[in-house]
Design a binder for these strands. Structure first.
Lengths: 142, 142
DNA sequence: TATTGTTATACTCTATAACTATA
DNA sequence: TATAGTTATAGAGTATAACAATA
């Protein structure tokens, strides 16, 4: 796809390269002792908030039953704890431990690092890129 | 990250949404009977070309030993075959079967489909987005 | 000696179905 | 009846180390 006959597909194929660079940065989470989904889960959990398992499943785009194992491993590592959820005794809420908050900061530091191709852009280009995407988000939210 | 203090990180956080939409489209490969890595491998194999296992491992960004299993499954499904490689009897080359070429066409059709946010852009925005990324690629290739 | 692909191992992620305790 | 989370299961991807064949 090196032609611009279909600008959307062309742009999409170019974004593919960012995905490959992202995949490499995901491997970096291993240095923190976290498997990919564990890292994502930690990143989604905000300090002070307790989110239901099922909410986590939605955000991680996986089945409830998968979250059981992911949270099991995070809990075994002392990064997260399960709590009762007020108002519905069926749901369990997940919250970061103090150690989990420290690890989360490192995870976010890694994940927020733009990949080389993005980092190589000028500030104006980066800003223009963000503004274009914002228009796409706005258009799909209607 | 809703501010533009650091345009690169800001843009990167916005691209995160595209990743989530892409993840959903990956699940579509299941309808073709292909697991994610199998679909990626098929997409990488061009008709008529035979690529060494180790080359495939590089492109898939995984270890050689993983490719053994991925190619095993594709071969069992009749989509791919292993061949001797001329010039080095240690390497095995992987090539698409006729059936594999048909399936690959469907895989590419799926994967080249831009996600909703990208599809919602105007043609001009899509083109501008592609051109910005091209500048990033050019800058990192030096 | 070094490299290609394989095997063995152990762990993680995935989807499905069946189960429990709540609602 | 329906839902949240768990368990059981089977398949797939992952990294590491050890191995055979070849370079």
């Amino acid at each position: 796809m090196s032609e611009e006959a279909d600008p959307h597909r062309w742009a999409w194929s170019l974004i593919g390269r960012l995905f490959r660079e992202f995949k490499a940065s995901i491997a970096d989470l291993g240095k923190l002792g976290l498997a990919p989904m564990q890292g994502h889960a930690i990143a989604l959990l905000e300090p002070g908030a307790a989110v239901p398992m099922s909410r986590l499943a939605e955000q991680l785009q996986c089945d409830n039953s998968n979250v059981t194992g992911i949270v099991d491993r995070l809990e075994a590592a002392g990064l997260v704890k399960r709590q009762p959820f007020e108002g519905d005794r069926r749901v369990k809420a997940v919250a970061l431990t103090p150690l989990g908050e420290q690890v989360r900061a490192k995870v976010l530091e890694r994940l927020s690092q733009p990949p080389p191709t993005l980092a190589a852009l000028s500030e104006n280009d980066a800003r223009a890129l963000g503004e274009i995407l914002l228009r796409g988000f706005a258009a799909t939210e209607r």
